[in-house]
Simulated assay, not measured.
Amino acid sequence: MPQAYRDVLEVLCDAARPLRAGHLVAALGLGERAGAVEGSRSKLKRLVPVDADGVAHRAIATGHERCLASVVGPVTVRRTAYRAEGARNLYPADAALNLPVGRHSHGLRKRAALEAVHNSFDTTVAAITRSCGKVVAKRQVR
């Protein structure tokens, strides 16, 4: 990745809040003249998530929720969806948070695997229910 892109990502990651184009240009040390800000603004608008098929997801929808069963019980994750007509939504936060594809968290899957190695599936479900609550059934442990 070119150094200029790394610089932009570093400034955006270090920011405590979303930045406007003028603030980003100033933080990058490009000056505060109108031409630099407008040129950067037009380039930033072209930065949109692209899926594996090369489809750009330009529309943003907030408030999407996903339920996740974890070792501390059920958790609801709110995230932003990037949408494109005729394509599945993109959820970049899923990758950033290392969320699993399915409903059960990595920690819960690990606990189920460790229990299932030493015990029957019924005993495994009972042990998980005792420590985590009713978050998994026998069928999911298999």
Rank of each mutant, 00 (worst) to 15 (best):
P2E: 01
P2Q: 03
Q3I: 09
A4I: 05
V8M: 00
L9F: 07
V11C: 04
L12Y: 00
D14W: 02
D14S: 15
D14G: 15
A15T: 06
R17C: 00
R17Y: 00
A21P: 15
G22Q: 12
L24N: 06
A26M: 04
A27M: 01
A27W: 01
G31E: 11
G31K: 12
G31D: 11
R33H: 15
A36G: 07
E38H: 14
G39F: 07
G39S: 12
S42E: 13
K43P: 04
L44T: 07
L44M: 14
L44A: 15
R46T: 14
L47V: 13
V48M: 08
V50M: 08
V50Q: 03
D51R: 11
D53R: 14
V55W: 06
V55E: 00
A56D: 10
H57V: 10
I60E: 08
I60A: 04
A61I: 01
T62P: 03
H64D: 12
E65W: 09
L68M: 10
G73I: 05
P74N: 07
V75L: 13
V75C: 06
V75N: 03
V77H: 07
R78L: 06
T80Q: 09
A81Y: 05
Y82D: 11
Y82Q: 12
R83Q: 14
A84H: 06
A84G: 13
E85R: 13
E85A: 14
Y91L: 07
P92Y: 07
P92Q: 10
A93S: 15
D94P: 02
P100S: 03
P100R: 04
V101F: 02
R103M: 06
H104P: 02
L108Q: 10
K110M: 03
R111N: 04
A112Y: 04
L114K: 07
E115Y: 10
A116Q: 15
V117S: 03
F121W: 11
F121D: 05
T123N: 05
T123F: 00
T123R: 08
T124E: 05
T124D: 10
V125K: 13
V125R: 15
A126K: 14
I128S: 04
I128H: 04
I128G: 02
R130F: 01
A137V: 10
R139V: 09
Q140H: 14
V141H: 06
R142F: 12
